[in-house]
């Protein structure tokens, strides 16, 4: 590569790095700044993450929601997708279409239409933020579908199942003890993505009036920007760790296959 080209590359990459790093570093600086224009640093905003009761409750709620959503997604989607491969291959297109549909319908549109459904849900199950699980499963469907679909494509589900059935296994046994272990990484990946998405979800929670972490952060922003920024950075770091862990998962799979 010629010298001018090298310099051009270097400059371009540096500018990109600055653009992406600046807001992140600013969050760190902003959230540790001393209050009232004083010099120096304070960890007050970060301590609030654990001391502010509303915030703490919201964090717990969001984590629970993430867990519930991941579990519900796996329970609903994995058997369905395996079943489609094994017994109803004709339905592949339909299921794929339905799973990817939430990508094309903006979340806010679903929120508008889901109010009636949710009045039934809260009537039947009570007014807990955990009922958001249902909406969130829909939301994470496209990402989860892709992850699991990739894993399923990598193995020959049919042959595996036929082998197990010929040895006397029933369908439940085939799915749970034969297919599932072979797509574990794909399922885990789907669960990771689900957790990451749920922790950042704001549209449903705010418009259906449930207090999750993002809703609480947004609310706090009006009175205590430093704590909001600290919480934002904390949730970003948490999600980064999840997603980067996920990319390691993928790399391991590639090297082991």
């Amino acid at each position: 590569m010629s010298l001018p080209a090298r310099i051009g590359r270097g400059i371009a990459l540096t500018l990109f790095a600055i653009y992406f790093a600046l807001p992140l570093l600013s969050m760190l600086d902003f959230s540790t700044r001393a209050k009232g224009g004083a010099e120096g640093r304070t960890g007050e905003a970060w301590a609030n993450l654990f001391q502010d009761e509303d915030l703490r409750n919201a964090i717990i709620m969001s984590l629970l929601l993430a867990l519930f959503t991941a579990v519900a997604m796996v329970v609903l989607l994995v058997p369905t997708m395996i079943w489609v491969r094994l017994r109803v291959p004709g339905a592949t297109r339909v299921i794929e279409f339905l799973c990817l549909l939430p990508l094309t319908i903006p979340a806010i549109v679903i929120v508008v239409g889901i109010a009636n459904v949710y009045s039934w849900v809260t009537y039947l199950l009570g007014d807990s933020a955990l009922t958001l699980t249902f909406a969130y499963v829909v939301l994470v469907l496209p990402y989860a579908y892709r992850s699991i679909d990739t894993a399923l494509s990598a193995i020959d589900v049919r042959t595996l199942a036929e082998a197990a059935r010929s040895l006397g296994a029933g369908w439940t046994r085939v799915i749970v003890t034969v297919v599932l272990p072979n797509i574990a990484q794909g399922v885990l990946g789907a669960a990771f993505v689900a957790v990451a998405l749920v922790l950042g979800e704001y549209v449903f929670a705010s418009l259906l009036h449930f207090d999750t972490l993002p809703v609480e952060i947004a609310l706090l922003g009006k009175s205590d920007a430093s704590t909001s920024v600290a919480a934002s950075l904390a949730s970003l770091v948490f999600v980064s760790v999840l997603l980067i862990g996920l990319s390691f998962l993928h790399r391991n799979r590639r090297s082991s296959s």
């Binding site: 992140l24 600013s26 969050m27 950042g200 947004a218 922003g221 920007a225 920024v229």
Partner: peptide, 29 residues
């Protein structure tokens, strides 16, 4: 690629606060 994977998902509330912390009235920049 790893950073992009994170930042592409980084919409929402935290992003708004990231820019408030950067370019807001008392933002760092």
């Amino acid at each position: 690629l790893a950073v992009s994977g994170v930042l592409a998902q980084f919409g929402g509330v935290p992003l708004a606060f990231a820019f408030i912390a950067t370019l807001g009235f008392s933002g760092v920049l």
